[in-house]
Design a protein around this nucleic acid. Structure first.
Length: 217
DNA sequence: ACGAGGATGCTCT
DNA sequence: GAGCATCCTCGTG
């Protein structure tokens, strides 16, 4: 993909402008860096993502999108999902939990990737301070757990995640690791759509419901 | 181990 | 008032 011939740097807007499913797949194995001012740098390996596209009833911007005309039909919650690729879309779930998405597709096309789980690589102590008494894998093995551990909340919403304080570094699967896909978790619409990507068998992947169908690849 | 239920804030799909 | 892209605690085995 396109990040400039193997150069080590944050994934840029051109990366996130790609089709949502490709971004969701390519983000698995990447490193999420949170470098808040004056705090220890935290890095997590992304081990699970989910893709949401504009033609998807489970997508937060679905009701804003006119499929016949291929364009926005009104304003409302989620318009940011049709905005600049590489922008954070953070929202409160169940009134309690912050969930972190990155806007995908070119400007004008709706899409987002939900970051569902990371494996702590650096700054574990700083994460544990935000989640006391939540050691082991439960530190970051869920979409709201990782936002709490990394300190992601509404203040990140609408800001670019292609440069500090929050950005992604390219990465891939380690030796012996395999990518898997499944239907998505925790939604009630379009439940059969296959948009979840994760590292098969990884301990920091979120606990899957019993009916989870997987399709390794 | 697994299931049920509560917490809590925002949008209306 | 219902419905959420969730997590935690407390029951039961």
């Amino acid at each position: 993909m396109s990040d400039g011939a193997g150069r080590e740097g944050p994934l840029g807007a051109d990366f996130f402008a790609q089709p949502t499913l490709e971004v969701a797949r390519a983000l698995v194995g990447s490193r999420l860096v949170c470098d808040w001012d004056g705090e220890a740098r935290m890095v997590g390996r992304v081990v699970e993502t989910e893709a949401y596209t504009q033609d998807d009833p489970a997508f937060h911007g679905w009701h804003l999108y006119d499929e016949e005309r291929g364009m926005l039909k009104r304003e409302g919650r989620g318009v940011e999902l049709f905005g600049a690729p590489g922008t954070a879309y953070v929202y409160l779930s169940y009134g309690i939990h912050w969930l972190f998405n990155v806007v995908t597709e070119p400007e004008g096309v709706g899409g987002a990737v939900l970051i569902r789980a990371v494996e702590p690589l650096e700054g574990r102590k700083a994460m544990e301070e935000r989640r006391p008494d939540r050691g082991g894998r439960s530190l970051t093995n869920g979409p709201a757990k990782l936002t709490q551990a990394l300190g992601i909340d509404r203040t990140l919403h609408g800001t670019p995640v292609t440069a500090p304080p929050v950005y992604f570094l390219r990465g891939g699967l380690a030796e012996g690791q395999a990518m898997a896909t499944s239907s998505r978790i925790g939604i009630s619409r379009a439940v059969d759509r296959r948009g979840r990507f994760y590292v098969d068998g990884h301990p920091y992947v979120s606990p899957a419901p019993p009916s989870d169908e997987r399709m390794a690849r």
